[in-house]
């Protein structure tokens, strides 16, 4: 029931997102023009500007929600998410280096691959720092450390970049922005994202088993070490591609699994798909809102997700502190 509602919301919001922009025109008429294979300014705006933006919003939102759910299931920690554990900022750092220093001229595919490498490095570092049965505090501390290092390195890299415009774009990477995506970006991010998704979807049963602890999961035939690497790699693939395209949009991976967990009966396997849908809903909503809020200079979508997500994060910390001794 909830899944149907979420799926419906994704579809409705997707179409709303297509109609929102600086100029309003009839979506229906434009689609008819498209079907008649006529080209007009409106068909161009729809296909080349709004469609990629909405599609990327769905894909990135789904990636962040899905990866947040998978990480929380794996670490059995409700505070785990691509943003908190540093994979997003690791991906942002590597993408920044590849982009601003011209390495992507070698091959555009270097970009999602660099994002993946950065995300993987960050999560492995956090994992190495905190170990297996880590408390919430150590995980957050390790994440804070990795995030701080990555943020500093992003600043450094952008300040050293050859482009005079680069300096103004630090915030784009740390907050995320959907306004400049094109169909080319979409094609570039799609393959690694899909591989990541497929790798994660098969993890549901194992994540379910993990809710009984690693020993019990292992006794039920789950190879916990292999599962861990699979999830690290899969989230790195998907999050890396997403961040390399639109920057590090925060808090979706943290908030969405949390909100949806009670609705799916706390079952990690069902949470995966639900969180993917929920993430898409949240990012679509945020991206529609930034376009509706009147402002001189276009707002970045990450500003909104952070405005919603950061207080939620604080609330979670307070709540968890009460529950734990």
């Amino acid at each position: 029931m909830w899944l149907g509602l979420l799926m419906g919301s994704v579809i409705v919001l997707f179409f709303i997102s297509l109609t929102v922009g600086r100029h309003s025109f009839s979506l229906w008429q434009t689609v008819q023009e498209l079907l008649a294979q006529e080209q007009s300014v409106y068909t161009l705006i729809l296909i080349e500007l709004r469609l990629p933006r909405s599609l990327v919003a769905v894909i990135v939102g789904a990636t962040l929600g899905l990866c947040g759910a998978a990480m929380q299931g794996l670490l059995r920690n409700p505070l785990a998410s691509p943003g908190i554990l540093g994979s997003s900022s690791g991906a942002a750092l590597f993408s920044v280096i590849v982009l601003y220093f011209g390495f992507h001229a070698i091959s555009p595919w270097l970009l999602p691959i660099a994002g993946m490498a950065g995300a993987l490095l960050a999560i492995v570092l956090v994992y190495a720092l905190t170990g297996n049965d880590s408390t919430i505090t150590t995980i957050i501390l390790a994440g804070v450390a990795i995030n701080a290092i990555a943020a500093a390195c992003i600043s450094l890299a952008i300040n050293l970049a050859p482009s005079p415009y680069a300096v103004r774009e630090i915030a784009l990477w740390t907050l995320g922005d959907l306004s400049k995506v094109s169909l080319t970006n979409l094609w570039l991010m799609l393959p690694t994202t899909l591989i990541g998704w497929l790798m994660l979807i098969g993890c549901g049963q194992a994540l379910n088993a993990l809710s009984l602890g690693e020993q019990t999961a292992a006794s039920m035939g789950v190879n916990v070490a292999r599962l861990r690497w699979r999830i690290f790699l899969a989230t790195a693939l998907a999050v890396g591609a997403a961040v390399a395209t639109v920057g590090a949009i925060g808090f979706i991976g943290l908030v969405i699994p949390h909100l949806l967990r009670p609705l799916v009966g706390y079952e990690p396997r069902r949470l995966l798909f639900a969180s993917a849908l929920g993430g898409a809903v949240m990012l679509l909503l945020a991206d529609i809102s930034v376009r509706l809020i009147p402002s001189q200079i276009p707002l970045q979508v990450g500003v909104l997700t952070a405005l919603v997500g950061a207080p939620f994060f604080l609330y979670l910390i307070v709540k968890l502190r009460k529950e734990l001794p």
Partner: peptide, 13 residues
């Protein structure tokens, strides 16, 4: 395998 003080990590039904 029934673990010693088996933990359940989520409030599952």
């Amino acid at each position: 395998y029934l673990e010693q003080n088996g933990d359940v990590h989520w409030p599952l039904p």
